[in-house]
Amino acid sequence: MEPEAFPVRCHVVTGKGGTGKTTVAAALALALAADGRQVLLVETEGRQGIAQLFDTPPLPYEERRVAVTRGGGEVKALAIDIELALLEYLEMFYNLKRAGRALRKMGAIDFATTIAPGLRDVLLTGKIKEAVTRRRDGERVYDAVVVDAPPTGRITRFLGVTGEMAGLTRSGPIKTQSDGVMAVLKSPQTAVHVVTLLEDMPVQETADALAELTAAGLPVGSVVVNMATEPLLPEEELDRVAAGRLSGAELAPALAAAHVHDGAELATALAAEAVEHAQRWAAQDELRAEVDGLGRPVVELPLLPGPIDVGALFELAGRLEDHFRTEAAA
């Protein structure tokens, strides 16, 4: 992966709860870091999911290396602390470092973010923009930033709240900062990727999220179908079995040849299981067609056995690297 081959530098990963968006975000960061690239993986929800995936202690509010990839690439991770992000903001734009610390001791920061929850999203997106545009000695610090973002139900609000803030102010640092954030989030260097499962609710939420993001003028990337499974039956038999045209009598001879006791009763039960599996697969295939019909590039990640560890993340990263390499070349 050559650094200049990928115009998208801010990858926002969202998805319905339970679809594995944090896992996908972590694997995507590894994929983008291949061949010597520097990538920052940002957690926005305070769950320390990234630390658990990489088997590291809970992340502080600082950028720490969590993985090294092919060619000496690095993934650093950052769990954004809202209070510290606000202190950083006050110091950066208003030179109010001491005042900010006093506000924190008084509990004013927690109070402000509680009564104005949109402020949290402003701080989060502001920090993301800062990481995307940060330079050192004239060079970009990170080739890409991957964001483990809020779920689909509030992703459009999360990404758009800073634009609303810009509309409330006519000038000054808040206006300048807000316009700068939206300039990044609505530009071709950003892409919002939606993670789904081949289940009714996640697919519907994916369709809704894509429509909302498009209407808001936010750039949509790929749809990631996570935890996809393969059929256990031969493909040529799936339609017949799904239609219920499989009986225990067809399976009984094979069980008898294997000297299985109570073969007839077991054969009937196995036939019922096979029919149910084939019907689930048919329904899943219909949902796959719905996802393909959403008009976005689609990549499928397999359901891996056992818990997700760093080795599993690298396996998923290989799939994602192939997908985004193809997309960049198209």
Rank of each mutant, 00 (worst) to 15 (best):
P3M: 05
F54W: 11
A328I: 11
V122Q: 13
Q284K: 13
V195T: 07
V224L: 13
E91K: 10
Q38N: 11
S187P: 11
S178L: 02
V13F: 01
F314A: 12
R135E: 15
L96R: 14
A25Y: 03
G72S: 12
E2H: 12
E327R: 15
Y142V: 09
E4H: 12
A67S: 14
E43Q: 09
G293K: 07
K97V: 00
V13H: 00
R280W: 00
E250K: 00
A149D: 02
V42K: 08
D292F: 13
V223F: 01
A264F: 06
G172H: 04
L232S: 12
P305R: 02
L246G: 00
T69C: 01
A116M: 14
L103H: 03
D143F: 06
G263Y: 15
A278W: 02
V195K: 00
D55F: 05
V8C: 09
L266T: 06
T113N: 04
E205N: 03
V310N: 10
R136A: 13
G18V: 02
K16R: 08
F314R: 15
A254F: 12
M106R: 15
V194T: 09
H323A: 13
I109G: 07
G73A: 02
E205V: 02
L313G: 06
P173L: 06
P7T: 07
V66D: 01
A191N: 04
D262V: 14
S187Q: 06
L40Q: 00
G318P: 09
G217L: 12
V147E: 01
L78R: 04
G244W: 08
L232C: 10
I50N: 00
P253R: 07
A329F: 10
H259V: 14
P305M: 00
L84N: 09
V298T: 09
E273V: 09
T229M: 14
R64S: 12
V141T: 10
V260W: 12
G318M: 08
D179S: 10
M201I: 06
G118R: 02
T23R: 03
L313V: 05
V260N: 06
I115K: 10
Q204T: 13
L197V: 01
L86E: 07
R140V: 03
E139V: 14
A77G: 07
E321C: 08
D239K: 12
V146P: 00
R280I: 07
G263N: 14
L197T: 03
E2F: 09
A211G: 01
L84Q: 15
E45L: 07
V192M: 11
G221P: 04
I82C: 01
G107A: 11
T162V: 14
